[in-house]
């Protein structure tokens, strides 16, 4: 994939509306802003604060030819690979977690040479989003030097013009669309995040279009009462949808813990029946559920309640 030129990225930003206006819409209408072939970047990390409702809606709407990027990609990455919605994957790691073993579809696609996956280091990819957020074409780093990662990715090394020291340069990343799930937002798109900030603010600033789902929509005054908690300003945001449990069965800081047992079931099915089980999972939980509400109805309400309780206890 060719790295977007930083001048072109700034021109595209010039076409974006920065108006303080009503951004509140439905999940489906927000996802209408994603086009086939877009580079879609995910906020959150691993199985925390993942914009899963947005990811599932993109699959429901049948987008194709996408590039997806996320620093540590969990099973949402597997879904896009399993239905060939994504042609390119930009990441530093893909899987659910050590107890669940190596991703079967990563192996299948990777070992048959079908996958175009860019292998960055966690920081290397983070600095690419950061460079984009800074409006610069690249950033110098001391990481990835001397490694195989530097050989298989679009990095350059240079001698520092001041000290002569060898530096690794990573090119800026300017995603077309950022997908973010946050704790609360107002109707103008001002977003607040509790717990880990991850890279959401960098990804939002680097992207042309920013789509947000929020656990809660709050009054503008509520945002203004605690402006220090705002991670993403409204003018960056193009659409906000109210989606409680928008990261579930992944976790949301202080609201609900991850549903490990759900991962067990998902992975056990793949182990038993092969990667076709990913498609079966999607047929049930994504394509078979017309909306996020219908999706949530497939989960046991008692389990949801227990996961909310566990989250409260963890912070206690």
């Amino acid at each position: 994939m060719k790295t977007a030129d930083f001048v072109e990225a700034r021109r595209r930003l010039g076409e974006k509306s920065l108006k303080t206006t009503e951004k509140l819409t439905t999940l489906a209408k927000a996802v209408n802003l994603v086009r086939d072939g877009d580079h879609v970047a995910f906020g959150g990390c691993m199985f925390t604060r993942t914009p899963l409702a947005l990811a599932m809606e993109i699959l429901r709407q049948g987008r194709t030819g996408l590039t997806i990027s996320k620093n540590l990609m969990c099973y949402e990455g597997e879904w896009f690979m399993a239905v060939d919605a994504a042609q390119n994957v930009i990441t530093s790691w893909l899987g659910i977690g050590l107890p669940w073993g190596i991703s079967r579809i990563l192996r299948e696609k990777g070992e048959s040479g079908q996958l175009r996956l860019e292998d960055w280091s966690h920081m290397g990819l983070g600095m690419r989003y950061r460079a984009g957020a800074m409006g610069l074409p690249f950033l110098p780093t001391l990481t990835m030097l001397g490694s195989g990662l530097a050989e298989v990715t679009e990095t350059r090394s240079m001698a520092c013009p001041f000290t002569g020291q060898t530096l690794n340069l990573v090119p800026a990343l300017f995603p077309d669309v950022a997908l973010l799930h946050v704790h609360r937002a107002d109707r103008y798109g001002n977003c607040q995040i509790d717990g880990y900030p991850f890279m959401d603010a960098d990804i939002a600033a680097a992207s042309t279009t920013v789509l947000v789902t929020a656990e809660e929509i709050v009054d503008e005054d509520e945002i203004r009462r605690h402006p220090d908690r705002t991670a993403i300003p409204g003018f960056m945001v193009d659409a906000v949808a109210h989606v409680p449990y928008g990261a579930y069965p992944h976790e949301m800081h202080g609201l609900y813990v991850a549903d490990y047992a759900h991962y067990d079931t998902y992975v056990d099915a793949i182990k038993a029946r092969g990667t076709g089980a990913i498609r079966e999972y999607l047929d049930r939980f994504v394509y078979g559920a017309a909306s996020h509400e219908a999706y949530l109805a497939l989960f046991d309400g008692e389990v949801l309640k227990r996961n909310e309780q566990d989250a409260k206890e963890l912070l206690g």
């Binding site: 540590l72 990441t91 530093s92 790691w93 893909l94 899987g95 190596i102 991703s103 990563l106 192996r107 696609k109 990777g110 070992e111 048959s112 040479g113 996958l115 292998d119 960055w120 280091s121 966690h122 920081m123 290397g124 001391l142 990481t143 990835m144 030097l145 490694s147 195989g148 990662l149 298989v152």
Partner: peptide, 21 residues
């Protein structure tokens, strides 16, 4: 080989950065 591996593993995550920095 990288282009057609016998076993595709999950990747670096932060490991490359930890050992480098």
């Amino acid at each position: 080989p990288y282009e057609k591996p016998r076993l595709r593993l999950p990747g670096s995550g932060g490991a490359n950065d930890i050992i480098s920095l």
